[in-house]
Nucleic acid binder design. Structure first.
Lengths: 216, 216
DNA sequence: TTTTGTGAACGTGTTCACAGCG
DNA sequence: CGCTGTGAACACGTTCACAAAA
């Protein structure tokens, strides 16, 4: 199969969610136009995205909601369960654990690690927090995905340990792109960057407004 | 000035962080190559990104760390403070409040809103949680940025209220792209999507491996 | 007539490659 | 000689536009 762009995958995620809503509303068919409108995407984009994986629609009619939903579910790998290890039981880690959608979408947290002695041994969400030094032992747990919610300084080290323990995907909340070997997928959620990007945009428009005011 | 792409701004954020580190290490000059290597970006990309804003380097020598750091600080709008209102004092909201980098980068949370009566009136990080119904009153607080950390259902409504109260930027943690009028900047951090994107990637490589195994 | 699926056209961001300056 | 700054070439993602099918 041709390489699928990151943006296409993100949109599939959106389509999937729209389909769940529309399904709940009891609709049987949906057009690419209707699928598009909720996300500020064009209908051509929707059709192109879906066409990478097959021809799911019927000309003149649209897509069968239930069928397309199942297809996307399978394409996104959501019809299986993923074993997740969380490293870092601080604020972000705890927030993630409390997030119900996590388990609902097929992600099972099966181990929690932290380096802080005050946290090790505590029970969170039914799991006992392990010493981060024990991450190599995660190899026996067949972990698919590691979530890094540690301070920046520890992040790369933790990533290395997770990779050594056999994880194939890492979701990183530390504000730095980590180095992972080929074959391991990395996604980074960087809140600092989002804030700075907002700051940039606001600074720009404010400066522009000032100039316009001075000129007028 | 020409329109700056989202990806360029994100990279500026990275460069800025690298410069802070290099500055702390006491280095005076840095080349585009060195700036690039930590982020898996090419040196040409670094030079191109910076060139949109001016000529900060010296041919044959590179960039003065301290000078470039200050320039980026100004470009990103980090040499001023931004007034932030947080809506939703649940797990994610609390995690954000506890995040020290928030204030350090110039973002001051000056109001917290929630709809849950159990939370209203409680004190978090020195601020009393207000009833979300009072968001219109935020107009008097001159809020720049609204952070939405509410359940999905309330998110659009909250966004509308924030916009009406005069915010010019929104950082949204609800898993849906919200509708905001032109002139208001929206950034969405969607953890569900990141997880599903990981799931997709892992599912792909697993399937590919199976096929290769069957063929071999 | 409606709506899909898709090659072709287009636009935008990245990389190349080298002139220009220190 | 080293490294920046930048047009030109390239790659890639999006949009267009229309043939094909229901």
């Amino acid at each position: 199969m041709a390489r699928i762009s990151e943006s296409t995958v993100r949109r599939l995620s959106h389509y999937y969610r729209v389909l769940e809503e529309v399904h709940a509303e009891g609709k049987a068919m949906i057009s690419s136009h209707r699928l598009a409108e909720r996300e500020g995407v064009t209908s051509a984009q929707v059709r192109k995205d879906l066409s990478y994986f097959g021809s799911f629609g019927r000309r003149g009619l649209g897509y069968k909601v239930e069928h397309l939903r199942k297809e996307l579910r399978s394409i996104l790998g959501l019809d299986q369960r993923w074993r997740v290890a969380l490293v870092g039981a601080g604020h972000i880690g705890s927030a993630l654990l409390a997030y119900r959608g996590f388990a609902a979408q097929g992600f099972d947290v099966v181990a929690i690690y932290d380096r802080d002695p005050a946290r090790i041994g505590q029970k969170i969400g039914g799991l006992v927090v392990q010493d981060a030094a024990a991450i190599p032992g995660a190899a026996a747990l067949a972990i698919d995905i590691g979530v890094i919610a540690t301070p920046l300084k520890a992040a790369q080290e933790v990533a290395d340990a997770l990779v050594a323990a056999g994880v194939r995907g890492i979701l990183n909340f530390a504000p730095r792109k980590l180095f992972v070997p080929a074959g391991v997928t990395l996604r980074t959620v960087d809140m600092t960057m989002e804030l700075e990007s907002l700051s940039f945009a606001l600074h720009q428009t404010r400066a522009r407004r000032r100039r316009a005011g001075a000129a007028g």
